[in-house]
């Protein structure tokens, strides 16, 4: 396959960036999208040019490090996968592919396609945990049975990989899907219910402080989320928030 890549290049957080065009040849369908970028980078290095910086680590869709807005879609055209799981067989010979970083005020660009998603960490630090000491002196794991459906739903919410695609997909750059996934995971388990009120208030407060936008229920986040995190989580968080607010 022969392709034209249009890639966002930006020296660092302070520099102004621009789109740069790169022709590329010899791409096979079995290559992953990131392996295609590896090929480009090897060519750039051979020419003595600065390779394109992008975030990646596990390359199997679980660490949440990779990002990329590909032809306007976070994680590209395929559904329920991350960029590192996208394969070139989804593209055709002669295609032009536009590659940009995830865009959001709360995710400033670090370099080229890399953005700073530490706002997500700070939302979790505000309350994304159960306040239990790690001494192991807790009760036996089987002493509180948990309804299987609740446990499964809690697990489904907990599979969020913190990639930020939901924010990049949203016209308001809202972080509701991400935040609600954590709130839901705990809300559905007996272990999480003790602190439910404080948790939701603190996490939402931090989310707002970080400069994420409001949710207007367009649902783009759910469509682009590589882990299929459901909008129901947002509804659940709104209920939790409402009941927390009325508690005072």
């Amino acid at each position: 396959m022969k392709l034209t890549l249009k890639i966002w290049r930006q020296e660092n957080a302070k520099a102004t960036g621009k789109m740069v065009s790169y022709p590329i040849d010899g791409i096979e369908g079995d290559m992953s999208f990131l392996e295609m970028l590896d090929v480009l980078n090897e060519e750039l290095v051979a020419k003595g040019e600065d390779p394109v910086e992008f975030d990646h680590d596990c390359r199997e869709g679980i660490c949440g490090t990779c990002s990329l807005q590909i032809n306007g879609e976070p994680h590209g055209p395929d559904r329920l996968i991350t960029t590192c799981q996208l394969h070139m067989r989804k593209f055709n010979d002669g295609d032009t592919i536009v590659i940009e970083p995830f865009r959001a005020n709360a995710f400033p660009v670090v370099k080229d396609l890399i953005v700073d998603r530490s706002a997500f960490d700070r939302i979790q630090q505000a309350g994304g945990y159960v306040s239990v000491n790690t001494s192991g002196n807790t009760i036996d794991a089987n002493s509180i049975p948990v309804n299987k459906h609740d446990a499964d739903d809690s697990f489904a919410a907990a599979t969020c990989i913190g990639c930020g695609a939901c924010v990049a997909a949203c016209k308001n750059a809202s972080a509701m899907l991400f935040t609600s996934a954590k709130v839901s995971q705990y809300a559905l388990l007996p272990q999480g219910q003790v602190e439910a009120t404080d948790r939701v208030m603190n996490m939402v407060r931090q989310m707002d402080l970080e400069g994420f936008g409001n949710c207007t229920n367009t649902g783009a986040c759910e469509i682009e989320c590589p882990k299929g995190i459901s909008l129901e989580n947002i509804a659940r968080m709104n209920r939790e928030y409402l009941s927390a607010s009325t508690k005072g």
């Binding site: 945990y129 159960v130 239990v132 790690t134 192991g136 807790t138 009760i139 036996d140 794991a141 049975p145 948990v146 299987k148 446990a151 499964d152 809690s154 697990f155 907990a158 995971q185 705990y186 388990l189 272990q191 999480g192």
Partner: peptide, 13 residues
Amino acid sequence: IDQCVAQGVPFAR
């Protein structure tokens, strides 16, 4: 396992 369950790790049930 006790510790992780107390932390809210959603193991299969």
